[in-house]
């Protein structure tokens, strides 16, 4: 785990109001794009190579069969340990260090069961050692439709509601880049569709990278679709319309079907 002193955090991120993209700033800095290019090796074997750009303030959906390295890309972006080595460059287009600009949301909501719903939203501020902006947390709770549950424990809520907590927590971090690692995959179909629309709405203006196994999800949400297979990362055509696309729109259905066909033929 990285240990940073508060002084370091403010001095290491120059040129931003308040010094960092998180916590109490309600004003978010303009989201940067990310350039990712290089080769990833595990125990000396080339696992994948990629030369892609995640465009600023847009949704990029990353698809591919399990084990192809989608989550590894997210971990590399986050600067986490992956167990392998990466040769190449990962850069934000605004030249600021990525670590201070990214937040992420995983398949599991990762809520802390002993904290109330509200406390779970501002846990990031507590973990950094600052004073949490509780009013901000409360308003974000409203934005994800959980106002009435502020003081409940997350254990009493459904899986979909817990993902709403995770979404509000991600918003509280207020970082311009958001990585989503299959955050909706464990939800039932109706809840998933709702959550997709909610996430697209509240994450507007941010650069989003969504790892998903669901071609339908990608067809609805993506400005850009990347498909990983056989160690390569390729761009996939996206309908011309603006996301979020209607579930039953012909271009969504066509895109989804073609994507599924392609994934079935794809190899690791």
């Amino acid at each position: 785990m990285r240990i940073t002193s508060p002084q370091c955090r403010t001095s290491c991120v120059p040129g931003t109001a308040g010094g960092r993209f998180s916590g109490n700033n309600t004003q978010m800095t303009k989201a940067p794009g990310i350039v990712f290019s290089g080769q990833y090796r595990l125990n000396g074997n080339l696992l994948f190579e990629a030369a892609v750009e995640f465009p600023a303030a847009q949704w990029t959906c990353l698809l591919g069969r399990s084990g192809v390295g989608k989550s590894t890309i997210l971990r590399l972006l986050l600067g986490f340990d992956t167990g392998g080595t990466f040769d190449g460059t990962i850069q934000a287009t605004n030249a600021l260090p990525l670590a201070y600009q990214i937040s992420y949301m995983a398949q599991s909501a990762l809520v802390l069961p002993w904290l109330s719903v509200l406390e779970n939203i501002y846990i990031g501020a507590c973990l950094r050692g600052g004073k949490p902006d509780i009013d901000l947390a409360r308003s974000l709770l409203g934005r994800v439709g959980l106002s009435g549950h502020a003081h409940q424990k997350p254990g009493t809520l459904s899986g979909g509601m817990r993902q709403r907590i995770a979404l509000a927590r991600t918003l509280f971090e207020n970082r311009p880049v958001v990585l989503l690692d299959e955050p909706f995959s464990a939800l039932d179909a109706a809840t998933r569709a709702e959550m997709q629309e909610l996430a697209a709405d509240v994450l507007q203006g941010r650069t989003v990278v969504l790892v998903t196994h669901d071609p339908g999800e990608a067809a609805r949400l993506a400005h850009q679709i990347l498909v990983m297979s056989a160690g390569k990362t390729r761009s996939w055509p996206v309908p011309d319309s603006v996301p979020v696309r209607q579930i039953h729109a012909p271009e969504t259905i066509t895109c989804q079907a073609r994507l599924l066909d392609h994934l079935r033929k794809a190899t690791l």
Binding site: M1, R2, F80, Y100, S103, A106, G124, L127, R128
Partner: peptide, 10 residues
Amino acid sequence: DLAHAMGARK
């Protein structure tokens, strides 16, 4: 991982 991404102190 989540705490790391949030910039948590140990």
